[in-house]
Write a protein that binds this DNA or RNA. Structure first.
Length: 153
DNA sequence: GCCAACGTTGGC
DNA sequence: GCCAACGTTGGC
């Protein structure tokens, strides 16, 4: 089993939004970066645990725990010409973009701000903290995952 | 709103 | 295949 951090802009789709979904699950559509896609398509397995991270907002940080809920499959929005995620280069019989469904797993008692994550030596190697890092999906170690989860409990 | 860092595009 | 220009990300 692997551990991941996935970023979402809470104004667009927040951890609370995920929780409010009828089945508490959501297709992680709109990823248009090859590295992030490769993580979903090639490495994610149902059951993997996720740090659900809020980015580009007043207080960025980890909002809760999610879980990979499906196998990878093509992102439908790449074929939808009205979608902001439409990709005219992608063909039905050879899709470019893949996603997984993400489900709500558990609440944290408290939000874990980026500011706090930066304080700990144990977390200092996280890609999240590396300069210029813009990846929206990245692996985290079990140690990092458990440490952050613990900070929120 | 600024800006550093990075990925992508497209001309050559 | 190089690389300048451009667009995007995301913290501050």
């Amino acid at each position: 089993m692997k551990y991941w951090l996935m970023k979402s802009e809470p104004d667009v789709f927040s951890f609370e939004d995920l929780k409010k979904r009828p089945k508490k699950t959501e297709p992680w559509n709109g990823v248009r970066n090859y590295q992030a896609r490769n993580f979903m398509r090639d490495q994610m397995k149902p059951g993997d645990l996720i740090l659900f991270y809020h980015s580009s907002c007043k207080i960025p940080g980890v909002a809760g725990i999610g879980r990979v809920h499906s196998l990878p499959y093509p992102d439908e929005t790449q074929f939808q010409s009205k979608s902001e995620y439409y990709d005219p280069k992608s063909k039905k019989d050879n899709p470019i973009w893949f996603l997984v469904d993400v489900s709500f797993e558990e609440d944290l008692k408290k939000f874990v701000p980026l500011e706090e994550i930066k304080k700990y030596q144990l977390l200092s190697q996280m890609r999240l903290l590396q300069k210029g890092n813009r990846l929206s999906i990245m692996p985290v170690t079990e140690e990092e995952f458990l440490f952050i989860k613990n900070l929120g409990n």
